[in-house]
Amino acid sequence: MASQGTKRSYEQMETDGERQNATEIRASVGKMIGGIGRFYIQMCTELKLSDYEGRLIQNSLTIERMVLSAFDERRNKYLEEHPSAGKDPKKTGGPIYRRVNGKWMRELILYDKEEIRRIWRQANNGDDATAGLTHMMIWHSNLNDATYQRTRALVRTGMDPRMCSLMQGSTLPRRSGAAGAAVKGVGTMVMELVRMIKRGINDRNFWRGENGRKTRIAYERMCNILKGKFQTAAQKAMMDQVRESRNPGNAEFEDLTFLARSALILRGSVAHKSCLPACVYGPAVASGYDFEREGYSLVGIDPFRLLQNSQVYSLIRPNENPAHKSQLVWMACHSAAFEDLRVLSFIKGTKVLPRGKLSTRGVQIASNENMETMESSTLELRSRYWAIRTRSGGNTNQQRASAGQISIQPTFSVQRNLPFDRTTIMAAFNGNTEGRTSDMRTEIIRMMESARPEDVSFQGRGVFELSDEKAASPIVPSFDMSNEGSYFFGDNAEEYDN
């Protein structure tokens, strides 16, 4: 783990906690998980779902989305002020799938948001429990990260689609708070800032007046979040320049895209947490497990152990491969979309394939898809080993990566060399080191050039047997250095459309 220093740990961010010791953190995270579980059980009762239907990941996603929508204050306010045809701002819903006479049927349900809020609060001892809501947002974000390569979004903001390893959390809503900021990748933060800068260039009043003052505060806050992700002084200094700019424009845009590229080699610290679907927490609570009393951590053995003992089902389209669908969801559960496939294969105990080789589309089923041909199958979400999630980018030494994705962002704290394609990355730096950030740029390029592919990161860190909950005997895996390590390699994943 990167030293926490003055930073709060993510469990504290996750639970809005002030400084807590490890036991208190485990208890408050457990409380959050228990609340999600209780809410899910109650919703299944309301909807009269069978046990099997309640364990269907598509039903879980609909129920999670309903509660997130019920608590989305800004959108609710907007919907009330701008009524649109056929949208009731006070209601929320989605597809629920039921097994009827041996076939899967889709039923569109509609609930009062007020009623959903009441059920959620009741499951969370009367609190709004925003930490639990954020947790579900991060699960949705991790699922998107594993399912889609955001080529269009990258290109629109002047970045290269091969930089997708920097895009963790790119679909997280803005209201996801400190826990959300911690899991956002460098590219995601750059993209958010670039969008602001572009608006400022096109709209003279963007930075002016009372609204402009708020915009400015948001801009500086985002700059500080991004600065905190960088691990070298030169990158941090460049972020200070971007933040202090009187009138952010093209120079800042250039600096930010430069920094994003540099992060492929001088990786930023991005938190990883295993956020599971509500249909995993519900049955665990129903079986009598007391998360608050037992304590829970999002970055240790607990999620692995929970998945070892969970039964989750998914709808499967006619030509999809259930094992591939399982891999997709497994990666999402562990926030591992940008991790090295060699490491993932070792931990999972079966070969993890790149996205383009998977015969599976996303987990969600569109409303126009034919239910007649839908089957369902068990998702295999178990693992051979477990490993500690990392909050750091690993040290800054790398190795060759593949054509589709030119770097990785480690999820697990496991000893290995970190793949990246130096030639491709360095070719993108057209040696432009003039301007006010020239000395920093020169320094950053120097550090990137001296990074050695064969150097090892996370020295001495290994994986653990599932029986080793105290992480007492690390097993340090050895990897084939020459092997392909990137998930979005030469990829044809669908595009994420909101």
Rank of each mutant, 00 (worst) to 15 (best):
T433C: 08
E369W: 10
S482M: 07
A332D: 03
V270P: 13
R317N: 03
K214T: 08
I25S: 03
K227G: 06
G126D: 13
S60D: 08
N202M: 07
G102F: 15
R121I: 04
A366R: 04
R391P: 02
D468N: 12
T171W: 03
S297N: 03
G300F: 03
Y78Q: 06
Q4G: 00
E73I: 09
T6G: 00
A22P: 08
W386T: 05
T134R: 00
R441S: 11
R382T: 09
E53M: 08
D145F: 02
L341T: 15
A179P: 08
K325I: 03
D497N: 13
N59D: 13
G490N: 03
A237L: 08
I25C: 11
V363T: 12
E372S: 06
R436E: 06
W139T: 05
L108C: 06
S478F: 11
F479S: 09
I201N: 08
P283R: 04
V190R: 01
E80H: 04
K227T: 08
S367I: 02
Q42N: 05
Q149L: 08
E484M: 15
L353G: 00
D112I: 02
L68K: 02
A70E: 08
G404T: 12
P277E: 06
D439N: 12
N319W: 00
E53V: 12
F71Q: 14
Q409I: 15
P303F: 08
A451L: 05
S3Y: 04
Y219P: 01
K273I: 02
M447N: 05
E11Q: 13
L133N: 02
C275E: 00
P322V: 12
F412G: 06
I408S: 14
L307N: 04
A178V: 13
A286H: 11
D491G: 10
L298R: 09
I41T: 14
T92W: 08
L418W: 03
F412P: 00
D240A: 06
E24Q: 11
W330N: 03
P173A: 14
I444M: 13
P277I: 08
S326H: 04
C275D: 03
L68P: 04
R150Q: 04
A493H: 13
R174Y: 01
A366F: 07
H324S: 12
S141F: 12
V183I: 15
